[in-house]
Nucleic acid binder design. Sequence first.
DNA 1: CTGAATCCTTAGGGATACTG
DNA 2: CAGTATCCCTAAGGATTCAG
Lengths: 140, 140
Amino acid sequence: MKPRGGHISDSCRPISEILSRIGDKWTSLIITRLTEGPLRFNELKRQVHGISQKVLTATLRGLERDGFIERRVEPTVPPAVEYSLTPFGRELAEPLMALTRFALVNSQRMEAARQAYDERNGTPFTEASKPRRPMRLGMN
Amino acid sequence: MKPRGGHISDSCRPISEILSRIGDKWTSLIITRLTEGPLRFNELKRQVHGISQKVLTATLRGLERDGFIERRVEPTVPPAVEYSLTPFGRELAEPLMALTRFALVNSQRMEAARQAYDERNGTPFTEASKPRRPMRLGMN
DNA sequence: CTGAATCCTTAGGGATACTG
DNA sequence: CAGTATCCCTAAGGATTCAG
């Protein structure tokens, strides 16, 4: 922080940025898979259950752009593309895996907290939450 | 597949879940502020620059529900509400802060990687990215 | 096999106004 | 002060189709 005030938003930007990056529902799972070794596109797609090809592609592009993964194209036919973590990506993986571990270890604790909360107060939030549930669930 | 395979999706659910929770652009910033002590609603709103009051409320509710923060109402008039991390929240804060630190330390490295990438390939992604930018930017 | 392009739906978030 | 309640819009993500 500086003289006075602290310019919090300055230091916040990169935080929000990277947290959005890894918080996007798929990135962490992809990184996790890749920590165990390089994978080809469809291997990755199979291991990350439920991700669509479009989103996988987009996510991989983003990670490549940020320098976390490397994309190697084997010029065969049909082409074989291999994705792997860069050293930078492995650095990211470390704190990320720590968080991931936390999630795994404490998932039931969170669930319990939620149920307790929902018991004290009305279940979901607004209380006026309709019996909704039409929602298209993504099978692919 | 069956016996073999490891049930990846089972272990993935809590990961995606918590990562979405903390990856939602504001949560990490809120937790970060709260690691330094309890704060009242508007103090928090002021410290987390740019967050709207609606989103702050919703985020705090979610964190309370998951057991990460506690909400204490001082029955004065006007009411004073204080938010603080629970022990569970402090546990979460640890790996979260590690990631946060990573983001801070490496933000320029990411930026550099991005510029390098954009130089090799066309700037943003689709190449056909319109000169867009009308987008309402949120001032509050 | 590895994507790119399109279309469509939904959830997240922002602005604003109002209340105990 | 600390929220609720609306309205609205965009970006993320899914389904599907096409191609090198």
